[in-house]
Each structure stands twice: as structure tokens, then as C-alpha cells.
Nucleic acid binder design. Structure first.
Length: 814
DNA sequence: AGCACGCCGACT
DNA sequence: GTCGGCGTGCTC
């Protein structure tokens, strides 16, 4: 540093838009000269110097003129390590979001600050007061009587006025304005007491009660005031007088909201079968060599992949390194949580959507401090603030829940890869039906492939029959259940065995159509048919949440002739109840008014044998192990096969294989029935045989021929706007601008552009949606062209009301 | 996105 | 004259 230079912080500022976002330079004032990268701060921003929160991402010396200064610190210590800041930058330049969006996605919600504006009355002379309107005078008098800063929202509510009136008062100098930052969730603290340093209690003359307390504090060093009162039976006044005499002092300690009871931690060895052991040995050698690498653990359903990575996690834990274990949906894996907490006690932190915001914050802090070294959670667990990561495991790596559908539209697999690279750690992808992309990488030798080909213990694969529903209909059976499936359910009921019935969500919702005019009831805001929900007797839109009470009056022709069509889970359940009146049926689907915890309760009830039949959508295919289930029925396999994008076969294969694999996990042999009207489709036959290898060979051929991942990346650009014409115009303009840039600057870049075209659901929330699909390489050059075009369009006044989103390798083309 | 500044119409 | 309407441009 030269003499005339000073410390400058590069700060990611909250609430910027992509169009003008950057790292903003602020001068570090002298009294804050020991700030560190990774600390959050409050800075004045914009013309009005209103406060914004931000995070310091870089520090350097310079002599730039006219910089504003950092106002204050929000964290007394950095909350991000340098590696986490590297991850912030990684997300920023890969997913087209602002710097602070990237910071925010890595933090638990509870840790974020809310900036609120407060107003106070200023003492002014009568001339000024008399110039106010009556209404303004009223507001002024109100603030004067409050005699303390009043939150903006409160004033607006009390007087039902707009913000402009307050701004006017402020400009007149009648009221004062200040911004303050508040945490949504407070740290939970407890009042502690301890003796002051260098105090010998014999030097003082104390009352008997004070003596007792002082003795206690000599022994225990420190205790909460509550504890002191509890053990001595005295009140707080005794400690109060000790503090007054400067013998003891009060301070606050943070407490955790989740009380951890370290109950009988299991120390017994994980027992592995010979094939599991050799898989483990292979993975362990990868873990040990100090290079970052990716391994794919591919094991058939029921082969015991969990035990393998459990042992690996144990090794990592014993090396005092951190582990992240990601699962697709935590509400469906209570068993896994139980296994881990019973083995590792409070060294496990669970990032659980069922936790309150405060609890999540506490879990985050336990990890941040190094108190918990094993993190178990869903997608966002990949951002766990571990300081020294040795291993990241992604269970069921092909699951779509690892991809975020909100900005930043990240894929947890890519973040995991990046963090493992930074920590020289092992990334372990685990699956019975790996994504085609991952298996391809393994085949090419870029990932290390480890196979488990046999089921653990006595369990064998279920016997699967495929039933052609066309034939059933020709025989006069128009119900959801084939004769075969009906008979098997009936026999299971007699033998006190459990059954699982899988319905596909798509096309299985109950919609309403008019018998007079033939119209289907659609959402007024979206181009989607409304579905009927019996739980609240309303018709609802799944896209925007719009709902109206059910009536039989057609909104179009006003005849009272609305009628249900389609077969929802509710209808399929009804049929089941009609067929087997004595059966105890449990229905589960994502739309039912179910909370996360009720999934768990219901699944546990099913596991305990309180129900005979579990019927529902995707969720029934995953989660708990039910040893008593010997029959799995798939009502209609077709809808999942023939949806709209290149991944539908992969998803259908994975779902069918998983659900079929649910049958016969215990001692009894299982059976499964797949009902379809296209029995000749090879995906159905292969998932019945659980033949991933043949499926993969077919699928990779298709991907190569049609240039889909892993042979290309897919970039989906979405345009949303209220005015359809402008939206189309914007889509065309954007696409052309992009193509022109690529042609002039990167003429050799391989590229195929499709579109613009209407999105499948072309209107959501009154916004028209169009899209461009680009097959490309997700390279630095490609991303920089996208970024450049996005910035250009954010400055374009003509299209300022059109939203443009970019999603690289999206889940679907919607 | 906000927010402030500035340049024009309708009001006591 | 002046209040406040919205159009315009900037954010370290």
C-alpha cells in the first residue's frame, strides 16, 4: 500500500437488477479497517443513500475518488470462507444472476436482514407547521406523540396514505428518516452469569444466599441465571446483588433451538457384504488420494448403496473432515435421518424443510462453527458452510429436485463438483438408475464407475407383468384396474400383505367440462384447465393458485351442466374403496392439503401396518422401505412416457424401476403389475426387467442422433410479457441479436437454434410466454454472449416490460 | 427495481 | 405563481 492509498471493498449489494449489477466499490472507513472478505455490511446506495445490505467479496488498496463509505457491519465475523466466495462467483458467472442473488442462495432464510425505514417528527417552528395541509399536520402530530421512530409501514397503515406523502414531509424537513436493518430471525440467547475475573469470594462479606451462589459459580465457572435459580432455589435478585457488588457479571450466550439429546450413539461396525466391501474399497481409495474426483455408484434397487456410503462417511468423519449427504426429498427419508443421528449423534446437522426458520438458522450455525461435521439435507445442503469438505454424496443423483427452478437456476451436481474441486474432495453420485449424462461420463472414464449388481440379503427382484389396457377395454373393463391387478390386490388383502398403487400426476387431475357447450373450465389467468379438489370443494389452477368455489354452472353458456372428467387420485381411490370396502386405503399426493410432517406420519403409519393399500403419485415410489409390500401396481404408465421433452423416457424408466423395486424388499417374493395402452414401448419392458444397461444403450443412441445432453447442452431462453405482440417481437429480436453476435464474434461456435415458439403453457398469471431453445456447448464464450445480450436488452426501453430468463440444461421445456 | 431530479399542466 | 404529474437516467 502506498501512503495515499486506502482500503476499498468490492461489495455485492442486495436488490440490484441484473442490468446494472456489479461489485460496487466502497471506501472502508478507518474504524472498520479490520473488515474481512465474507462479512456482510450496510452501505448507502443510490441518490438517496438509502441503506442496502451487501457482502464484501473483495478487498484491495487504491485511491479512487468519490467513493461512498461502508456504514456499518452486519456480522462481526465473516460468514463465508474464501472457498464459499469462490462459489458465489461461480454461481454468478454461470447462472446469470446478480452477485447478491448468489450470496443469498447460499444462506438460510433466517439469516437475512430486512431493511426498514423509520420516521420521526422533527421540532420545527410554527411557520413551517402552518404551511402543512391538515392531513400532513395530523401525521406530524401523530409522530410527535409517538416520540420514537415509527416504521414506515405502520404510518402508511394508520393513515392509509401512499409513500409520496411521507417523502414530501421528509423533503420539507418536517420529519426525519432513517433506515435500519433487522434480522427476520433473532439468535436465541440466554442470560448467563459468572464470577468476575480475579475475584476471590473470601475477600467479601456476603449474605448466606449470596455465599451459596458465589460458591456454585466458583465450581461451575458459568451458568445460566435460570440454572442458578433452579439449583439454589433463590430468585434472580441474589445474582443481581452480586453483580451490583461487581463480584459477578452477566453476559449472554447463544442457545440452540433444537435440544440435542445424544442418545446411545451406535459404535458398531457397518457390516458389508463382499460385493459392498469391494465397492467401498474402490471408493475409499478415491477418497484417500488427495485429488478431487467424481465416482458414480451404480447399484440395482435393494443392493445396499446406503451402507456403502455410510461407511465412507464414517471414515471421512474420523478424519475430522466434513461430509454433505444430499437426498432428493427429506420428508420421505426419515429412516435415513434416524440412522445417521443414532450413529453420529449431534455431529449431524439436518437441513430440513420441516424445520422452522429459526431452527434452520441454528443448524446452519452449528455447521458454520464446526460443531456438526455431517450435513444431511436436500438441494440447498450443497451450500453447507463446512470449512474442510472431504466427501459429498448425492443419493439418487438423477432426481430432478437437485435442479433449482428459481434464479439462480443452479444444478446442485455442478455446485457439488465445484466445491469438491476446491477441497480436493470426492463427489459420490449414487443411483439405481443414473442419469444418462452421468453414466456416459462414467463410461468415458471421466467418472469412476462402481457397480453393485446383486440385491442385498435374500431379497430378489419382483416378478413383473405388463397388462395391455386396450385388451381390458375390449373385454368391457373400463375401470382404472385390470382384472389381474384386482385379483392380486384381493389376494394380498387376504394374506395380510400390503400393496402400493402408483398413479401418474399428469393427466390424472379431475377437470370440469360442460355437457351443453363442450367447454372445459380454464383458469382466467393461465392457459390451463382448472382442476377440482374435493378437499376444499373448489376448482383450482396449479400454475397461479387461482381458485373458485365449485358450482355446476358453466362459466361460458351458464347452463347447469358442468361435469367431472378425468381420473384423479381421488377417483382412483374411490374405485378402490368401492371394490374393496373393508380395505384400509391411504392416499398420498402432492396436491392434497398435506404438510411435510404429515407425509412422514402417514408413511410411518403405513410402515407400521395401519393401512393395507397406499395409493398416490410419484411420492409413493420413493422413501421408506416397506418389507411387507409384495404388490406394486402402476395404473397408467403412458402419461409419464409421452410427455414433452427428451428426458421423459429417462424419468419414466427411473420411476417405474424404483416403484417396481419397492415390491418384495422383505422375505416374501414380490410382484408388480404395469398397466399401459402401449405395451410394446421398450421402456416399459426394460423397467419391468430392471435392465438399466439396455435402456442406457438405447437412450444414449437417441441422444447422440438428436444432439441432446451429454452430447450438447440445452439453453432455454424464456420471454414473458403482458402484451403478446411485444413478447413475440422481443423473442425474435433477442434471438436474432444473439445469433448475429455469435456469427460475427465466434463463427466457429457449434449451435442449433429452435424458435421462438410458444411455451407449452403459453399463458401464466396473465403473462404470455415464448421460448427459444438452443443446442450448444455451455462454454465461457457462449455464456459471455448470452450475458452481453441480456445486458443489452435490459437497457432497451422497448422491451423493458418483457422478462427474459435463461436456464441452462433445464428440467423441462416449459 | 427504486429513487430523485426536472420539466409541464391545473389549482388556491 | 406552486403543487404534483410522470418521464428520464443513475446506482460505487
Amino acid at each position: 500500500m502506498k501512503n495515499d492509498e486506502f482500503l476499498i471493498a468490492g461489495i455485492a449489494v442486495d436488490n440490484t437488477t441484473y442490468g446494472f449489477d456489479r461489485l460496487f466499490s466502497y471506501k472502508v472507513p478507518d474504524h472498520l479497517s479490520n473488515v474481512k472478505v465474507g462479512q456482510r455490511v450496510l452501505v448507502p446506495f443510490g441518490r438517496g443513500d438509502r441503506f442496502r445490505q451487501g457482502m464484501i467479496l473483495s478487498l484491495s488498496y487504491g485511491k479512487e475518488e468519490n467513493l461512498k463509505e461502508i456504514s456499518s457491519l452486519l456480522d462481526d465475523k465473516p460468514i463465508f470462507t474464501q472457498e464459499m466466495i469462490d462459489t458465489v462467483n461461480f454461481i454468478h458467472d454461470r447462472y446469470f444472476c446478480t452477485y447478491y442473488d448468489s450470496v443469498k442462495v447460499m444462506l438460510p432464510v433466517g439469516i437475512n436482514y430486512n431493511i426498514s425505514t423509520f420516521y420521526t417528527a422533527v421540532k420545527v417552528n410554527d411557520d413551517v407547521l402552518n404551511s402543512l395541509t391538515d392531513y400532513e399536520r395530523e401525521i406530524y402530530d401523530y409522530l410527535l406523540s409517538e416520540n420514537k421512530p415509527v416504521k414506515k409501514e405502520t404510518i402508511l397503515n394508520v393513515f392509509s396514505i401512499g409513500e409520496n406523502s411521507l417523502n414530501k414531509l421528509y423533503r420539507q424537513g418536517v420529519v426525519n428518516r432513517e433506515d435500519d436493518a433487522f434480522r427476520k430471525t433473532k439468535d436465541a440467547t440466554v442470560k448467563m452469569v459468572s464470577l468476575c475475573d480475579d475475584v476471590d469470594i473470601n475477600d467479601y462479606k456476603l449474605t448466606p444466599k449470596q455465599q451459596k451462589v458465589a460458591e456454585l459459580l466458583t465450581v461451575v465457572d458459568k451458568a445460566s441465571v435460570k440454572e442458578v435459580c433452579y439449583y439454589t432455589g433463590y430468585t434472580q435478585s441474589v445474582t443481581d446483588s452480586l453483580v451490583k457488588k461487581k463480584i459477578a457479571r452477566y453476559f449472554t450466550d447463544e442457545v440452540m433451538r433444537i435440544p440435542y439429546t445424544v442418545s446411545d450413539v451406535k459404535k458398531d461396525e457397518v457390516v458389508l457384504s463382499p460385493s459392498q466391501q469391494s465397492a467401498f474399497d474402490n471408493l475409499y481409495s478415491k477418497y484417500c488420494d488427495d485429488k478431487a474426483s467424481v465416482s458414480l455408484l451404480y447399484g440395482v434397487t435393494g443392493s445396499g448403496k446406503t451402507s456403502v456410503f455410510m461407511k465412507l462417511i464414517e471414515k471421512c468423519f474420523n478424519d475430522n473432515k466434513g461430509t454433505i449427504l444430499m437426498v432428493p426429498e427429506i420428508a420421505l427419508t426419515p429412516q435415513l435421518i434416524k440412522i445417521f443421528t443414532s450413529r453420529f449423534g449431534d455431529n449431524v446437522a439436518v437441513f430440513h424443510s420441516g424445520l422452522s426458520i429459526g431452527e434452520r438458522l441454528d443448524e446452519y450455525k452449528r455447521v458454520s462453527r464446526g460443531d456438526a461435521k455431517i450435513v444431511l439435507g436436500t438441494r440447498s445442503a450443497v451450500f453447507a458452510p463446512l470449512k474442510n469438505i472431504g466427501l459429498i454424496v448425492m443419493d439418487e443423483e438423477q432426481e430432478s429436485s437437485y435442479k433449482s427452478e428459481q434464479t439462480p437456476r443452479y444444478n446442485a451436481r455442478d455446485i457439488a463438483k465445484f466445491r469438491c474441486y476446491k477441497h480436493n474432495a470426492l463427489l459420490l453420485l449414487s443411483s439405481a438408475t443414473p442419469s444418462v449424462e452421468s453414466f456416459y461420463m462414467a463410461e468415458k472414464g471421466i467418472y469412476n464407475l462402481v457397480k453393485l449388481t446383486e440385491r442385498y440379503g435374500k431379497a430378489t427382484l419382483p416378478q413383473v407383468s405388463v397388462v395391455d389396457m386396450n385388451e381390458e377395454q375390449m373385454k368391457g373393463n373400463f375401470s382404472n384396474y385390470s382384472t389381474t391387478l384386482k385379483e392380486l390386490i384381493s389376494s394380498n388383502l387376504i394374506h395380510k400383505k400390503q400393496s402400493i398403487i402408483l398413479l401418474n400426476r399428469r393427466g390424472y387431475n379431475t377437470f370440469l367440462s360442460c355437457r351443453s357447450c363442450g367447454q372445459v373450465v380454464t383458469c382466467p389467468n393461465c392457459s390451463i384447465s382448472m382442476t377440482y379438489h374435493s378437499a376444499n370443494n373448489r376448482m383450482m389452477c396449479h400454475y397461479c393458485g387461482h381458485s373458485v368455489p365449485y358450482t355446476d354452472e358453466c362459466p361460458d353458456c351458464h347452463q347447469h351442466t358442468l361435469k367431472f372428467s378425468g381420473a384423479g387420485t381421488q377417483k382412483a381411490e374411490q374405485e378402490l374403496v368401492d371394490m374393496f370396502p373393508s380395505a384400509r386405503v391411504l392416499r398420498m399426493d402432492a396436491d392434497a392439503t398435506m404438510t411435510k410432517s404429515s407425509y412422514e406420519t402417514k408413511l410411518t403409519a403405513f410402515a407400521n401396518g395401519e393401512y393395507d393399500i397406499l395409493i398416490g403419485t410419484q411420492m409413493v415410489a420413493k422413501g421408506l422401505d416397506f418389507p411387507n409390500v409384495t404388490l406394486v401396481g402402476v395404473i397408467n404408465a403412458d402419461q409419464m412416457l409421452y410427455s414433452d421433452d427428451y428426458r421423459s423416457y429417462e424419468r419414466a424408466f427411473s420411476l417405474l424401476t424404483q416403484v417396481v423395486g419397492r415390491s418384495g424388499r422383505g422375505d416374501s417374493k414380490g410382484v408388480a403389475v404395469i398397466q399401459t395402452s402401449t405395451p410394446e414401448n421398450y421402456v416399459i419392458g426394460l423397467s419391468a426387467k430392471q435392465d438399466y444397461d439396455t435402456f442406457y444403450k438405447g437412450e444414449i443412441g437417441v441422444r447422440k442422433a438428436l444432439l441432446y445432453p451429454p452430447f450438447s447442452d440445452i439453453c432455454l431462453i424464456g420471454y414473458q410479457g403482458i402484451m403478446e405482440g411485444a413478447t413475440i417481437k422481443c423473442a425474435n429480436a433477442f434471438q436474432n441479436a444473439l445469433i448475429n453476435k455469435i456469427k460475427t464474434n465466434y463463427s466457429s461456435m457449434p449451435l442449433r437454434v429452435l424458435g421462438p415458439s410458444q411455451a407449452y403453457v403459453y399463458k401464466v398469471n396473465n403473462k404470455y410466454r415464448y421460448k427459444t431453445i438452443i443446442k450448444c456447448r455451455n462454454s465461457k464464450d457462449f455464456r459471455s454472449v448470452i450475458k452481453e445480450t441480456l445486458l443489452e436488452f435490459s437497457k432497451n426501453k422497448e422491451f423493458k416490460n418483457i422478462g427474459i430468463t435463461v436456464d441452462i440444461n433445464p428440467l423441462s421445456f416449459n
